[in-house]
Structure formats: C-alpha cells, structure tokens
Design a protein around this nucleic acid. Structure first.
Length: 558
RNA sequence: GCGGAUAUGGUGAAGUGGCUAUCACCUGAGGUUUCCAACCUCAUGUCGUGGGUUCGACUCCCGCUAUCCGCACCA
C-alpha cells in the first residue's frame, strides 16, 4: 500500500508548521529540550482539550458510564499487584564482544518459554550455564544482568517514612482500585463503566518518532465491567460499512463488525461493539477512514489473561501506528487486586431461582470449645468443620503441631436447609484504551493539506469544528474608521460564549489573515467592513469552501 | 543503549579562524489598500550547551543535550 502523500519532506514541513504556529513543540526547548516530552502550544492546548472533551462526551453518551480521576502518583503495591512491576522491568545484559545490550529473557526463551517471568537470579544462573550466543556478533560472554524499569520511580513522603511509588504507566488501575465506589454508585447493577483521562508515564529507553512514543503522554481509558454469564446482545445495525480487519491467523478481511462478531472473528460481542464506538469517535473528530484498520493480537502476543484484543491502527507519516487497544481482560485485574489486598472486588449475582442447599456438618460449640482450647479454638473450629459428617467423637486432631482431643461436648452438628439467593463473582472487563497524543498526531496528519494558491504553497488544517482549536477569527478589513472597535467587540462577545473561542487578527492584509487562520484550521472567519458600521452585517467565510455570506452579527450562530 | 549524520533569528536555509554574520519568509510599527499570503519605509530577533586549542572560535577538537536515519528496544 503506497501512501505517497505521507512523504518525509511533507513531515518536515508539517513539523515546522506545527512549531511555527504553536501547535506542537518540543518541551523545555530553552533548556536544550528533553526527549519524549512535548508541549501543546497556544493553539495545540485547546486542540488537546477539545479532543479529550469529545472523547468523554462520546463515551458518557452510552448512559452507564461515569468519569473518575485518580492520582498519577501510585504506591508500589498497586502496580505490583497489577503486574506492572514485573512486566515493566526488563533484565538487560551486555555482550562483552560488541557491547550490545540484549534482554536476558530473550536470549534463553527458546529453551525456557516462561523466561519473561523469571527473577534476575534465575536468569543469571541459566545464562551462566547455557552461555547463549549474542544475536549481533555471535560471541558468548555476558556481563552482569541489570534491571531496567520502564516506570518512573518516586518516593511518596520524605526520609524514612517515605514509601516507594511510581508514576502510573496507565490510568486503568485507578478504575480497578475504585471498583467498590463505582459499584455502589451504580446501585450494584452491572454492566457499567468508568472512564478516566489523564497523564501516563513510561521511561522509554529511546523515544523516537515525535509524538508517537512519549515519556509522558495523554491517555483515555474506559473500563467496562460485565457479568461473564450474561448473554450479551449488541445492536450492530448502525455499522453498515465493511471495515478492514487483520484477524489472527486469517489475515486481512473486509467485513462489517456485525458479521465479524457473528462469525467469531471478533471473539466477544462487547469487544466488537466498542470497536464500533471507537470507530465512530475517530471518524467524528476527523480521522480518515481510509487510513484506519483493526488488527487482532495474535494469541501468543496477547497478555495471558486477555481473551481477545484488537488494536486500531492509523496510517500516517510514521506508517501504521497502534493508537487504540480494545482488550477483553477477563477478571484478571480485579482478582489481582483482590488477592493482593484481601478486599472484595466482586459483584453480586442473584440466581433466577434460589438454590436450596442442605447443610449437614460439624462445628464447634463456642461456649465450651472456646474456654477449653483457648488460643487454638479458631484453628480447632476450622479443623472440625472439615470433618466428615459421620465422624464420631471423641476424635484426635493435630492442630498447629499439637495433638488435640475433641470431645463430643465441644461440638455440635449443623443440620439445616439453606436458601442461597445468589453469589459473588468477579466481573469481567472490556477495556478500550486510547493513546490521545497518537490520535491527535494522526488527526493533524490526516487534516494537513498542502495546496497552491497563485503559485505559492498554501497550507490548510482541515479540522472539524468539533476539534478545531480556534472556532472563529474576527478580522476588521482595516483597523480604522471604527472597524477595529466593532471587530474587537464582536470578538469579545464571541469569546464570552460557552464553548466558543475566537481570535482577533488585525495585522497584515486580509488575504494573509485568511491564510494564517487556514493554517491553524479555523473553520470560520468573520470580516467587518465599512458597510458593517452602517448595516450591522458582517461577512462569514467558510474555510473549506471559501464561500462567503453576509449576516447580522447578532445572528451569528455555530 | 549501539553505530552514522546533523544542530546558525519564530520558520527554512547560506557562510566565515579575525571588520557590524547573510538571505527569504514570518513577526511588529507606519503608510497604502473596499475580501484570500499585494506593495513601500522602518524595526525586533540568531551561531544548542559545557570545556579545550588559539592572541582571537559560530567555524577546529572533546564531552553533554537534542534531532534525524539504521540496529536494538517498545506498542
């Protein structure tokens, strides 16, 4: 697939334009800059917030979604429970022959398929024994194994009382640790979801490719909690067009989302449904559908807990780039936090009919067994409850290494019929996770049009009004005879309106000002001329067509 | 992290071991101009950073930082 419009020369011109116009710039440049960190400038800042706002509105419109916001500073144990401490640490070792660093687990993964979950000592021992050859020079002489953690370390608090923490590598964990509050909010009824937008941090070894790999980045994630036993039906009828799917083991397929779900290409209907919602969002902000496709993770590439995972890849100056991941994560996250904290992170499922359970077993009689066994009473109770219902007392038990004789007066038999109305279960979660910076990049990349006007290069960012950082530019034809004052009034008036941001520009010829506005994607320009002073009419020019019409400025409406 | 290349106003480029560092665009002021980067005058603003060599370094050398391209890594 040749996409000649995305040339490196175009990328160079685009980057220069983004800097010049204050859209995206390297951060801290006066101090020499810092790799992997970017600023959204005076124009880019609102572009970012409008994209995030559109994203929030899109998902909140599902009706059973809430927005939360959790800290970026996160205690060690949270990310240990989630698996990030293990997963985000790479163990590197250096070849003494060529100096190339390799991942220790990759060197031995042919013989040890689970090498990525090994400790440093295990890896070290195996590498000493096996002495694998260096993939770049073929020697076999390895240095010490060092941990390279991709999370930013920090200390919460000072001195001895300081507690180890990280800057979060994703926002998702906040939704899991807040699960009890969200569950209560929704009156304990699934399905529901929580979204969060905010910064994430990964200390990338070598960030490259501009906005594509950052050390601090904007994320937007939805965690949607479902009952795995619910028969889930979604309406796919609104997605009539075929989409490009690269399915695991089946290659490229063009089909509708509904068909892909019913044929099992997409393995879970909610994943398919969110793929549709994701596509709707991307198209609504101005991503070109030609340059969008879905790619399914291969089974061995997927995290072990995930049941199905699809990426949305967008095409632009850096080729196909993964911008959204839609993953069915099963119950992995909630159970991991439950195991780590002992807190219940479950939902209650009422049976359609109560189950009747016959209870017939032994337990201790607390008032007698308690004084008799003292500190061992609890353990004795546990042991007794495991005994067969036909046990006859006295009986000798071994508790905490001690021989205990349990007499018949210590115990009582429980015999009753219980009605069990339902059960606690760990909800499953489907997670659409968006890399906002990557999406904004492709939005810019897809919107950037280079044309010519009377022999000169002419740039337009064709932003849709939903994301355009500036909604309207107010231009006096000349800054004299009262046109300046009238234009400034209109400008201030527009700015004071909800969700409207206007710029005033009075410098240079009118054509130059239209060109400047086009370059930052302003959809409308309002021009004040001599007649405006008399009849109160102004000219509205539409960026994409160049059409102009005159209206009363009181009637300006977007 | 490794190897290679690069770093000059806001942007894009030229250039030099020594005099006030050049050009275009941009930006600002004034003039002109009745709607798509017009014109005239004037103005603001630069040699990435630290060290070394030298009488003198933007220029040569070294370190650092950043950018780009490969590799590796990552998604």
């Amino acid at each position: 697939m040749v996409m000649e419009q995305f040339s490196t020369e175009r990328l160079t011109r685009l980057s220069g334009m983004l800097k010049r116009r204050g859209i995206i710039l390297p951060a801290f440049e006066i101090h020499g800059g810092s790799a992997g960190l970017y600023d959204f400038g005076p124009v880019g800042g609102r572009l970012r917030s409008k994209v995030i706002g559109a994203w929030l509105n899109h998902w909140l419109s599902l009706g059973n979604i809430v927005e939360i916001s959790c800290p970026t500073v996160t205690p060690y144990s949270v990310l240990e429970a989630s698996g990030h401490v293990g997963e985000f640490s790479d163990f590197l070792t250096e070849c003494s022959g060529c100096g190339e660093a390799s991942r220790a687990d990759h060197l031995i993964e042919d013989d040890y398929p689970n090498s990525d979950s090994m400790t440093r000592d295990q890896l070290s021992k195996i590498i000493d024994e096996k002495n694998p050859t260096c993939p770049s020079c073929g020697k076999s002489d390895w240095g010490e194994i060092k941990a390279q953690n991709l999370m930013f370390n920090t200390t919460i608090g000072a001195g001895k009382s300081g507690r180890q923490g990280f800057l979060r590598p994703e926002t998702a964990q906040g939704m899991f640790t807040s699960f009890p509050a969200i569950y209560r909010h929704f009156r304990e009824r699934l399905p529901f979801g929580a979204v969060q937008t905010g910064k994430g941090y990964r200390n990338e070894i070598s960030p490259r490719q501009g906005m594509i790999r950052l050390r601090e980045f904007n994320m937007a994630e939805l965690e949607y909690f479902i009952d795995p036993e619910d028969e889930i039906k979604h309406d796919f009828s609104s997605w009539k067009n075929s989409v490009m799917l690269i399915a695991d083991g089946r290659g490229e397929l063009e089909m509708t989302l509904g068909k892909a779900v019913s044929e099992g290409v997409i393995r879970h209907p909610t994943v398919g449904y969110f793929m549709g919602w994701t596509m709707d969002f991307l198209l609504s902000i101005g991503i070109n559908p030609k340059w969008m496709r879905f790619r399914q993770h291969e089974t061995d590439e997927m995290a072990h807990y995930a049941q199905d995972c699809w990426d949305v890849e967008l095409f632009g100056s850096y080729g196909w780039v993964e911008c959204v991941g839609i993953a069915h994560r099963g119950c992995y996250d909630l159970s991991a936090h439950e195991k780590s904290t002992g807190q219940r992170l479950r939902a209650w499922r009422t049976y359609s009919e109560p189950k009747i359970e016959e209870v017939d077993r032994w337990t201790t009689d607390g008032s007698i067994a308690g004084p008799a066994f003292r500190e061992l009473a609890g353990k004795v109770k546990q042991a007794v409850e495991l005994l067969d219902k036909d046990t006859s007392f006295p009986v000798n038990l071994s508790v905490e290494g001690r021989e205990i004789q349990v007499l018949s007066e210590h115990v009582k038999r429980l015999q009753r019929t219980e009605n069990v109305a339902g059960e606690w279960y760990i909800p499953h979660v489907v997670e659409p996770a968006f890399g906002i910076d990557r999406i904004i990049w492709h939005l810019i990349d897809h919107s950037f049009m280079e044309t010519e006007k009377s022999g000169e290069n002419y740039n337009i960012l064709g932003f849709k009004p939903t994301v355009s950082p500036v909604d309207v530019a107010v231009l006096p034809l000349f800054e004299k005879d009262g046109m300046k004052e009238l234009a400034e009034n209109i400008h201030r008036n527009l700015c004071s309106r909800k969700d409207i941001f206007s710029i005033y520009d009075g410098s240079g010829s009118i054509g130059r000002r239209y060109a400047r506005a086009d370059e930052i994607g302003v959809p409308w320009c309002i021009t004040v001329d001599h007649e405006s002073l008399v009849d109160g009419m102004v000219t509205i020019r539409e960026r994409d067509t160049g059409n102009q019409k005159r209206i009363k400025y009181e009637d300006i409406d977007f």
